[in-house]
Design a protein around this nucleic acid. Sequence first.
DNA 1: ACCGGTTTTATTTTT
DNA 2: TAAAACCGGT
Length: 709
Amino acid sequence: MALDLSLLNPQQKKAVLQTEGPLLVLAGAGSGKTRVIAHRVVHLIDQGVPARAILAVTFTNKAAAEMKERIIKLAGARERTRGLTVSTFHAFGVRIIREQHERLGLPAKFAILDSGDQAALVKRLLRDVKIDDKRFDVPRLVAILSRLRMSGIPGHPDEEYELAASELLPRYQLGLRAMGATDFDDLLLLPLRIFREAPEVLQNYQKRYRYLLVDEYQDTNEPQLQLLELLAGLRRNLCVVGDDDQSIYAWRGAQVRHILQFDKKYPGCVEVFLEQNYRSNGNILEAANAVIGKNPGRKPKKLWTAGGPGPNIRLVCAPDDAAEAKHVADEIIRLAYEEKIPPREIAILYRTNAQARPFEEALRLAGVRYRVVGGTSLFDRKEVRDLIAYLRAALNPRDEVALLRIVNVPARGIGDATVARAQELARARKATVWDVFCSAPPELGHAAERIAEFVAVLRSYGEKLSQRGFSEAARALVEEVGLFEEARRGAQSLAAQARRIEALESLLRQLIDYEKREEQKLAEKLAAGPQADLAADPADDDDDGFASGLPGYLMRLALDSKDADGDGGDVVTLMTLHGAKGLEWRCVFLAGLEEGLLPHSGRGFDDASGEPQADGAINLEEERRLCYVGLTRARERLILTRATERVKRGKPLPRTPSRFLEDIPAGLLDVIDLAGPQAESAKEVQQVKAKSFFAAMGALLDDPGDPQP
DNA sequence: ACCGGTTTTATTTTT
DNA sequence: TAAAACCGGT
């Protein structure tokens, strides 16, 4: 059965059929990019390319999962896609490192440090070098370390932070190695190193991955670019899809240059422009075009739609952030009631995570169910991080960040002094702290006994956690070391206690679910196809190359968008503009269209200190693209909001409208001023609405069920 | 080690 | 303003 291409437009078709050689697909927002990639993959398979020879790379796990799902659906049978790799750059890096871990001197179940862990490591290193760690903002040092490694570009060489970072860098890398751990950057840099130092290894991967696809190519940084170049080799079957107008990760090292100069790097490449938009109403598109049109140096393109203009875009001016949030909440209820737009089709987007607060409050008050994506989550809670540290330390006691985090949690009489002495000893003996703990030397005094106990516990669970039934073992560990009691201890209120316990329970539940699912998958595979396992190497079927069991869970945890539990349910979505890229809703609220917030400025807007921005002036072009991304998320309705005053740092601050608003043709906008002359009557209207609201909710409840609290 | 109260300080975006 | 860091008393 051949793939049906009749639903594609001519440009899309071209992008699908041009299978050989370098191909650049410039895909405007909503131009059917995902669909093209999915069709392309299935077309390749139709042409007889084995699925395992195809590698598709995305930037987020969510995007990868979605892509895979679409491909399977399109292919008609999961079987046909077996062996296909769809993953993020970072997950792909994990896979390579895992396959080559011996070459790198890493354990098979190496840890992946998140930024919190990195900060802990850097803090320790600062103390080692006898620099008072108070003088430095450690997260900033971590950021500079990352930039140094990823781009090799030293910043202002005279700055004390740059200096400290470059001095710290070798120690940092040695520290990681000694711990048998990696960080995010390593996931790209180590594979790159392997490919460079061991050409025969590279050849193996080149031989396997004959067709490469990259989504969101405008977001690639230098190491990613090089990784692709090496993998593509002389064959150059590299198809990149992206949109220079949606490049919003320059601060992470991404270079728009990469997509703009693809044709220079790959001469003879074919270029395809996808400019027909299938997503948004005409008015929304026109506004978005107007805003992005102001950016210089773009690949010129203009999105168009065959659909109608739709309703005007609305601009709401609220007196403050609370009013802004309340209006949005009221409006969401109205949309649900009058226009029957379900919550899952509505999103509230903003520039900074901090903006979510007022919206959460207003929505809760209004009884609207919602979900905040990103920001702080289950895994930012102290008790959960402690538990994870226990799991990590038990699996790999060399992981010193984890080990030192929990060595005295709950308090077991191994205090700061003892730990410091152990670290000294470790340094003197060129061993790890764990080794010192194990040998329990007399230097550690009467704490030695407690240390021996601690070592024994970690040892015994290290085994249990490596085997089947690890989720049970995790619970036993929690109980044995008394993490529940520990969670109860410091809590201010009973409610806080309950929240902490619940957080721990929630993680334990996740572990159980995870293990169950894994066992299920294994059973299915054994039942379904013994023949599938014959030809392929294990990494093939292990569809993403992660380890199995708890180590695999921890790796995923480090990489996955820590989206709390459950993404299901018919609820309103709240997230940052960065998180929103690639997604769409019928109705989008874009909040905080104000100077300093949407063109975001790093230095405070009220400050007179005139401190120079660390990394050059604000990136206005990128801020504009960010705005463009936000505008183009909406299918039918777009509501922009701003506040005339915002409480910042205790004191209220007057706010001016975003300059991007001026670029939107006035004819497309309906302006509503909540503080204007009609504010009183508007308020009354609101009140009337509020009264009818409960009736409305009642009606909703009676309708095909969506449960509201 | 732990507690309670006081003082400081923070403000982008994320794999 | 609110959360984190800090401090000094048990």
